[in-house]
Amino acid sequence: MSSGRIALDDVDRRILRELQADGRLSVNELASRANVSRATAYARLDRLRREGAITGYTVVIDPAAVGLGVAAIVLVNVRQRTWEESAAELGGLPGVERVLLTSGQFDFALLVRVGDIADLRDVLLGRLQTMPFVTGSQTIFVLDEHDNGLDLSLLD
């Protein structure tokens, strides 16, 4: 994650939007869609990577299609002054896709994906609740998901 904000102009934002829609675009296709020359697209892409705006490329996987049809948000409270070690251990739990340090009533929010309710029970009761720093938790089932990606219009 970058420590400072990267200056983006309209061309950068067009390039980011196109790559967010399809990260497999060739530089030629990216240039065409962003309405810039190939050299400009290549230079901008290189700068966006170097400055940390683009941190990698990934494949989007449908969790249900690969057997991870149960998703839950698990809100977790931990003992005071254990957040750093807690974050690392919580991230190591089976099925934990994302660990978020939060403010408010709970210290962490975890996105957990598992195959079935028995697997979730094992993670929550067999693992999470036995961690010595955990003082409480609440589980919310995810009924449906819509991933809109990063809202690049906020950069305009």
Rank of each mutant, 00 (worst) to 15 (best):
Gly4Arg: 05
Arg5Ser: 06
Ile6Arg: 06
Leu8Arg: 02
Asp9Val: 03
Val11Phe: 03
Asp12Ser: 05
Arg14Glu: 03
Ile15Lys: 03
Arg17Val: 05
Leu19Ile: 05
Asp22Glu: 07
Gly23Lys: 02
Gly23Asn: 09
Ser26Gln: 11
Leu30Tyr: 00
Ser32Phe: 08
Arg33Glu: 04
Ala34Ser: 15
Ala34Arg: 13
Ala34Pro: 14
Asn35Lys: 15
Arg38Ser: 10
Arg38Lys: 15
Thr40Arg: 03
Ala41Trp: 00
Ala41Cys: 06
Ala43Ile: 01
Ala43Phe: 02
Arg44Glu: 07
Asp46Met: 07
Asp46Gln: 14
Arg49His: 08
Glu51Pro: 15
Gly52Tyr: 15
Gly56Tyr: 02
Tyr57His: 09
Val60Cys: 03
Val60Thr: 13
Ala64Lys: 12
Gly67His: 01
Ala71Ile: 03
Ala71Gln: 15
Ala72Lys: 15
Ala72Tyr: 10
Val74Ala: 03
Val76Tyr: 01
Arg79Gln: 14
Gln80Phe: 07
Thr82Asn: 07
Glu85Trp: 09
Ser86Lys: 05
Ala88Val: 13
Glu89Pro: 07
Leu90Arg: 01
Gln105Phe: 07
Gln105Glu: 11
Asp107Lys: 08
Leu111Lys: 15
Leu111His: 12
Val112Trp: 10
Val112Gln: 12
Arg113Gln: 12
Val114Cys: 09
Asp116Val: 11
Ile117Ala: 06
Asp122Gln: 14
Asp122Asn: 12
Val123Asn: 04
Leu124Pro: 09
Gly126Ala: 00
Met131Ile: 11
Met131Cys: 01
Gly136Leu: 03
Gln138Ala: 13
Phe141Ile: 10
Val142Tyr: 08
Leu143Asp: 03
Glu145Thr: 12
Asn148Gln: 12
Leu152Glu: 12
Leu152Cys: 10
Ser153Arg: 14
